[in-house]
Nucleic acid binder design. Structure first.
Lengths: 196, 196
DNA sequence: TCAGCCACTTGACTTTTGTTAAGAAAAAAA
DNA sequence: TTTTTTTCTTAACAAAAGTCAAGTGGCTGA
């Protein structure tokens, strides 16, 4: 059972990008489930078909890929409130190209892939909702790539410090370094320099 | 008027990702127009609302942003056959975040934003078609970002040499360097080293 | 509580990439 | 063709980031 405060929080956040009607609310209440994830838990694995769309109520999660050299590359760090999934693979029921892992204890609302079809069929209109989501994904990725290509490692760290300080204070340095496209030692050096 | 060979070529390419019916074909024939773009022509400007969805029949185009320092960053180089536009901005009728420019002479089939609505309404189903497009965009960007974050400049160049050699042989080095996230001098050095 | 582990830091050194400036080559214009 | 302009290359140096290796400190679990 979803507690009312969490559910209201969820609906309010959703309303910001998609106008929720009473039907949608009821459907979500039926099909979403509350789920707690202890810290440092691998939640979805690269190569396996994702089961859920997840809405992070609280806590920090990361998305990462393992590249050809066997090295983990963190591609996203998130502490919600928002959805987080290997979205494309989830929709297509394909093996995920990315893994999801909790960094801290996390509280989620999640919905099964199959139940998403029901919700979209009976209530929430796929088109504006999905388009909105995809649009956000693409714009974030554009911004991220642009920064990776044009800013120095130090500038990227400063940007993160300014825009998402909560990430820096709650997430292990190695993940932040990886997300910013540098080695942990480099990040450490940059931090030392800035503290001086 | 669109010549038949070009139009068949276009329809065949489209059929690979979206099953075209006779109605769709007729609609496209009505609403798409043939357009030639001389080389080195700025076609759509960052800040202005994009007018067309463009299908590149032949030729090389690039998409670029101008960042805060006034520096142009090439984010995509393409020689079709495929669509190329500031897609999100086109759909939302928002000012483009990117500019489009021809590198060589280009042959396009293009359709006005308003006519897209008609085609989608009367024929081609928005959902599978658009989803397919967006999915491709997201996956390309994921791959691109991952490579930018994990590969060295030399490895990125070698990868491009292997995967899209036609780009390397037809596009000015400065654009390739920018796309690969490095300075022209660095690319030049890498090329020299590889030729030795 | 203590030992062991893991994440983070530090330092010395190497490699890669950026910067600046100049020259060569290629393309465009006259 | 010749001139002019642009693009590309080269070299020397500076700065940034990676690598390797060692050390520190905190967290965790027996």
């Amino acid at each position: 059972m979803i507690d009312e405060a969490s559910f209201n929080f969820f609906c309010n956040k959703l309303s910001e990008v998609y106008p929720m009607h009473e039907v949608d609310r009821a459907l979500c209440y039926t099909y979403f489930e509350y789920f707690e994830l202890p810290k440092n838990t691998l939640y979805e694995k690269q190569g396996e078909i994702p089961m859920y769309q997840n809405f992070i109520l609280s806590g920090f999660m990361r998305k990462f890929c393992t590249n050809d050299d066997g090295e983990e590359v963190t591609v996203e760090i998130n502490n919600g409130p928002r959805f987080m999934a290997s979205y494309m693979c989830l929709m297509d029921r394909r093996p995920a190209t990315e893994s999801l892992q909790s960094i801290t204890d996390c509280k989620l609302l999640r919905i099964k892939r199959n139940d998403m079809d029901i919700v979209f069929e009976k209530g929430i209109s796929v088109k504006p909702f999905t388009m909105q989501l995809l649009q956000n994904i693409i714009e974030e990725k554009n911004k991220f790539t642009m920064e990776l290509a044009t800013l120095s490692a130090e500038e990227r760290y400063l940007k993160m410090l300014k825009e998402t300080p909560q990430v820096i204070h709650n997430v292990p340095m190695q993940y932040i370094a990886s997300l910013l496209g540098m080695k942990p030692e480099s990040l450490s050096r940059i931090r030392k320099k800035l503290n001086t």
